[in-house]
Nucleic acid binder design. Structure first.
Length: 269
DNA sequence: TTCCAGGCGTATC
DNA sequence: GATACGCATGGA
């Protein structure tokens, strides 16, 4: 990764990075593409407009070097060498094809609470509707509400989200965390299996949502969320389990495969 | 109209 | 532990 400071903001040079793939592959739900092709979104209290200048150059509009080094470099996981991951996956035919197709995906380092809340909303739901619900949530609170804010709400008062049966799960998560019954900070430092069990104490959090929180909100690259798409992938390509070359990087493999089969549905037949 | 979507809680065996 | 079913909502 290399970068330089310009009058317009930071220009980053990095391979294995594609904004459309990374921001629109179902790991984050509140980035939007502007008419000029740039992506616009928020992380914590920071707003960003970022555009892809070429296959490996990116402009972070109006961003200072301090904000880049302190926030965005980490968020986009720019210090991680994804080409090394892709090289490892070359041992497996399907995985190497998926990795080549989805080689611009990076696993974002998102906020654990936002990730938890977002993937509670994601269950038995589709991506456009997930974005709609989260959009209404952020509009209401002028940004993603923290857990202490949502702990004041009830499933009934959250009806405006039109989140259906998930509203009571959001309430449960917010209240358990606000009361310190569950600590996302502690979970961050726990071994992955223990962290998963702890997350699953929240009502509405099962293995899949827990693994999404671990992968997208705590950067546990070995977490392996299995949704309806991945179930089909496993049945079709890996009836005996994931290949050895994916060990420790199951989450990265999962994201490549997820994007690959969603964009190439005929591969599952 | 029916089916499905980045699942999970509950009941039942 | 495995399996079946209901669940809110909205687009296809």
């Amino acid at each position: 990764m290399d970068y330089r400071v310009t009058d317009n903001g930071i220009i980053v040079s990095q391979n294995c990075f594609d904004l459309a793939q990374t921001l629109d592959c179902g790991q984050a739900f509140r980035w939007s593409r502007r008419p000029d092709g740039a992506f616009e979104g928020d992380f914590l209290n920071e707003h960003l407009v970022i555009s892809q200048q070429s296959s490996d150059e990116f402009l972070l509009h109006g961003v200072s070097e301090e904000k880049f080094l302190g926030v965005w470099k980490d968020y986009f996981d720019l210090d991680t060498d994804y080409s090394a991951f892709i090289e490892r996956f070359s041992d497996d035919e399907t995985l190497s094809q998926a990795a080549e197709f989805a080689s611009g995906i990076r696993i974002l380092r998102q906020d654990p609470w936002e990730t938890l809340c977002s993937f509670i909303i994601s269950q038995n739901n589709n991506i456009p509707r997930i974005k709609g619900i989260i959009g209404r949530l952020c509009e209401k609170y002028s940004g993603f509400p923290d857990y202490s804010t949502l702990a004041e709400e009830t499933a009934e008062s959250l009806a405006f989200l039109r989140a259906g049966f998930r509203a009571k799960y959001i309430e449960d998560a917010a209240k358990r965390i606000a009361s310190h019954e569950i600590s996302l900070e502690k979970i961050k430092s726990m071994p992955t299996d223990d962290a998963r069990k702890e997350l699953m104490h929240i009502c509405g959090v099962g293995p899949k949502v827990a693994d999404c929180v671990l992968l997208f909100g705590m950067h546990r690259l070995e977490a392996f969320p299995v949704d309806v798409w991945m179930k089909k992938v496993m049945e079709r390509f890996y009836p005996d389990g994931m290949p050895e070359c994916a060990k420790g990087l199951e989450g990265v493999a999962q994201q490549y495969l997820f994007h690959y089969v969603r964009c190439n549905r005929e591969k599952l037949i």
